[in-house]
């Protein structure tokens, strides 16, 4: 699927789509003003849980932490029946094997960051090795980072070629391309980077590594969603979206769901096409679900923090 539709695009500058930031902010405000209640809230929360990529990406990660997280991924809150699992766990390549084993028999996928995450400051050969390591260890999904420095210097072809090369080694594994929007600064850049990533073969585009502030924002995600919509319109190819970092409570996640629903519609309303990269979101969603079903406000003490 590499070079899906790139015929004729030799200069990515010509892809530049202007974005008016104030207009984007106004649109996002409208999403935030939607009031999600009762049944739609419960349905939305369950969907959110099912879309989470439970993530740990720290230098101090240990095998036991990864194991615990994998357990949590399958047993979110066992005292409450009828809850979905999360979509995937997201770890460093080193932990892919362990995660894969821990999740055996479940539907939960293993995603691995790769390509010299989070900075991407390494030659392509190393990035390819990094990716192969993750794949060989059994990763179902690869979360790569783009070379932001090259992007900002205008070397769009470099960025494109790198993504295309990674995609090639991914084979069946789905490739999520992290734009690190916090370093791209403008929404016009976010839009262009989204387009480059999709033309280069991304199965998902993802906002952030979680290591740079700001991470995912609704504004940035909105621009990426419209890029996905336009790409679908132009090529007929559906691409997924993953905001990551900074989405830590249900209310905000529901606002993302509203945005997704009103921008891309029901075809994207599943974990096949939308993910939340988050570590602490799951528990807040769980608390809200239990509150919604019992009518009782919840305490964090009753939800495990793995």
């Amino acid at each position: 699927m590499v070079n899906k539709t790139l015929s004729g695009v030799s200069d990515f500058t010509s892809l530049r789509i202007p974005i008016d930031k104030v207009g984007v902010e106004e649109r996002v405000e409208r999403f935030q003003k939607r009031s999600i209640k009762n049944g739609s809230k419960l349905e939305g929360l369950k969907l959110i849980l099912n879309m989470i990529d439970l993530t740990t990406l720290e230098g101090k990660d240990t095998p036991s932490k990864v194991k615990q997280m994998c357990y949590k991924a399958q047993h979110l809150h066992d005292v409450h029946a009828g809850l979905p699992t999360v979509a995937a766990v997201c770890v460093y390549p080193n932990f892919v094997k362990l995660a894969k084993e821990s999740l055996k028999g479940s539907n939960v996928k293993v995603a691995s960051v790769a390509t010299a995450f989070p900075s991407g400051q390494a030659p392509l050969s190393i990035k390819l090795e990094d990716t192969k390591l993750a794949l060989d260890s059994g990763a179902d999904e690869i979360d790569m980072v783009i070379s932001r420095g090259k992007f900002l210097s205008g070397d769009y072809n470099f960025v494109y070629d790198e993504i295309a090369a990674i995609k090639e080694v991914c084979g069946e594994a789905r490739l999520k391309v992290i734009l690190e929007t916090g370093e791209l600064v403008t929404l016009d850049n976010v839009r262009l980077a989204s387009d480059i990533a999709m033309y280069a073969g991304a199965d998902f585009i993802k906002t952030s590594t979680g290591k740079i502030s700001p991470a995912a924002t609704m504004q940035v995600t909105y621009v990426m969603l419209t890029a996905i919509r336009d790409f679908m319109y132009k090529t007929g190819v559906q691409v997924g979206m993953k905001p990551a970092g900074g989405i830590s409570n249900s209310k905000l996640a529901l606002q993302y769901m509203v945005m997704l629903y009103e921008t891309l519609g029901p075809d994207w309303m599943s974990n096949e096409w939308f993910r939340f990269g988050a570590s602490s979101l799951a528990n807040d969603v769980l608390m809200q679900i239990v509150k919604q079903e019992t009518g009782r406000y919840q305490s964090a003490d009753y939800f495990s923090i793995d």
């Binding site: 008016d20 930031k21 600064v185």
Partner: peptide
């Protein structure tokens, strides 16, 4: 005649 013109101001970061 008085004409009033509006345009957004982008504020980044």
């Amino acid at each position: 005649e008085v004409k009033t013109t509006w345009h957004p101001i982008e504020n980044i970061g």
